[in-house]
Design a protein around this nucleic acid. Structure first.
Length: 218
DNA sequence: AAGAGTTACAACCGCCTGCGT
DNA sequence: GACGCAGGCGGTTGTAACTCT
């Protein structure tokens, strides 16, 4: 139990006055603020923010290509980029990584996102994991800007849900897209494939797609 | 042409978890 | 068990690009 986060309760058990418990939290926050200010004054805090420049992308990409991923704080230090480790990781993961698919979502992808979201809620990384080349950030953004409205309007206008729509009406992936998603490379069928509960020939049914994705406690 | 409003998406922030010490 | 650190995640914000008036 983190008593510092529960000053109102901690004082009951430990006989610590509320004011004192609060002071501990406030003191820590003040300490953090002071430290930040000191860093800024000393010029230590020169972490760059905002949009990434092409030169920065190039540096990060070439560094990771030679040294590999992992230890992002180290990468940000050693590559000479004045970016935080987290920022480097995010930029690589969402933008620079190979096999990132950019551009608009296909109707299949859109529909899959809607269905997965219905099943999983805002578990963006899990949803993105079923969309090859798409990142959680991209899926999340796409949902917030496009599909959220769409799904709301569907709820209002159409009494029958997406699930109720006949599977035969669903668009089918192009041969090109199938190939790029590795169709024919796996042998055997999964439970998901057999039941084909999403109504697509491919896209989500990779061998790693387990029931535990939906029900992690199983 | 220009300013206001809207949209799309890149990036940041804070919290949580897992792991090593 | 406590602590610190790194990485991952979802929510939120910032901003460039676009559209409307």
């Amino acid at each position: 139990m983190d008593w510092e986060k529960l000053p109102l309760y901690s004082h009951i058990i430990t006989n610590t006055p509320v004011s004192l418990a609060k002071t501990v939290v406030e003191a820590k926050e003040e300490e953090k603020r002071m430290e930040k200010r000191r860093d800024e004054e000393e010029g230590k805090s020169h972490v760059k923010r905002g949009l990434w420049k092409p030169e920065e992308d190039m540096i990060l990409r070439s560094y990771i290509e030679t040294h590999g991923e992992g230890n992002w704080a180290d990468i940000s230090r050693r590559s000479g980029l004045k970016r935080g480790g987290k920022s480097c990781r995010l930029r690589w993961k969402n933008y620079l990584r190979p096999n990132i698919k950019r551009g608009g979502m296909s109707p299949q992808e859109q529909d899959l996102i809607i269905r997965m979201h219905k099943l999983l809620g805002n578990r963006w990384s899990l949803i993105a994991g079923r969309l090859p080349g798409r990142t959680d950030n991209e899926v999340k953004n796409y949902w917030n800007t496009h599909l959220n409205k769409k799904s709301n309007s569907r709820k209002q206008n159409a009494p029958e849900s997406v699930e109720a729509a006949p599977l035969a009406d669903k668009p089918v992936m192009s041969t090109e897209a199938r190939r790029s998603h590795g169709e024919g490379e796996e042998e055997g069928t999964t439970w998901m494939e057999e039941t084909n509960c999403f109504g697509y020939d491919n896209l989500v049914f990779d061998p790693c797609f387990a029931l535990t994705d939906f029900f992690p406690l199983l």
